[in-house]
Simulated assay, not measured.
Amino acid sequence: MLPQLVSHSPDLLKLWESGYDIEIIGDQHLLVHQIPYVNSIKEVKYGTLVCVLTLATPFRVGLPPDHTIYFIGETPCDNNGVVLRGVINNSSNHDLTNKITVNHYFSSKPISGNYPDYYEKVRTYSEILCSQAMAIDISVTSKPINRKTNE
């Protein structure tokens, strides 16, 4: 059974159903594990996207508070090993909580100024990173879990 926050939030449920490896910590942070990216020596690695969650109700998320997201992993690069400076706002270890230490802070602002929901926010950042990894290894995916939604 899905945790209440995911099952009552259409965007989180869509992430889960799409096969993203999601985890909610303390109803305050969404972690999306197994996101492929490329490091400086052109190796495909896997990291974690971290979003701050806002709650509309105790059982449902609201809109993302802004367009930024955190990342746990080495410095992401393009498929040639060049740092993705267009998306990295800051690179330094930062403790979000006593359980979550992030390494990078990303900013990729959509034309509208903010993402309409957490699904679009995660999908966008995931595609930025995964597209570079796919240029090296076409078999990688940011949606590693095959879930049947019609059970």
Results as ranks from 00 to 15, higher is better:
P3L: 12
Q132W: 01
T124E: 06
I136L: 15
E23V: 03
S7R: 14
K121Y: 05
S7A: 12
S92K: 07
H29M: 08
N80G: 01
K148T: 03
L129K: 02
S18T: 14
S40D: 14
S131L: 11
G47S: 08
I100G: 01
R60A: 09
A56C: 00
G73P: 00
R147I: 09
K148G: 15
K14D: 10
E120Q: 04
G47K: 05
S139A: 12
E17R: 11
R123P: 01
G81M: 03
H29S: 11
T124S: 15
G73M: 04
L55W: 10
L5D: 01
I100R: 00
V82E: 04
V52Y: 03
H67F: 13
V102S: 06
Y125P: 00
D117W: 04
T54Y: 06
P58V: 08
E127D: 13
Q132C: 11
H67K: 10
I136N: 00
M1E: 15
K143R: 13
S126V: 04
S112W: 10
K143P: 06
L53Y: 00
D78A: 03
V61C: 11
Q34P: 02
D117S: 09
K42S: 14
L13N: 05
G81R: 11
Y105C: 03
T68F: 05
G62N: 05
V44A: 08
T68S: 01
N79Y: 12
L31D: 07
M134F: 02
N103K: 09
F59W: 05
L30H: 07
Y118Q: 05
L12P: 01
S131N: 11
Q4N: 13
H8A: 08
L2M: 13
L49N: 08
L53M: 09
Y37F: 13
N93S: 08
S40V: 10
K148Y: 10
G73I: 02
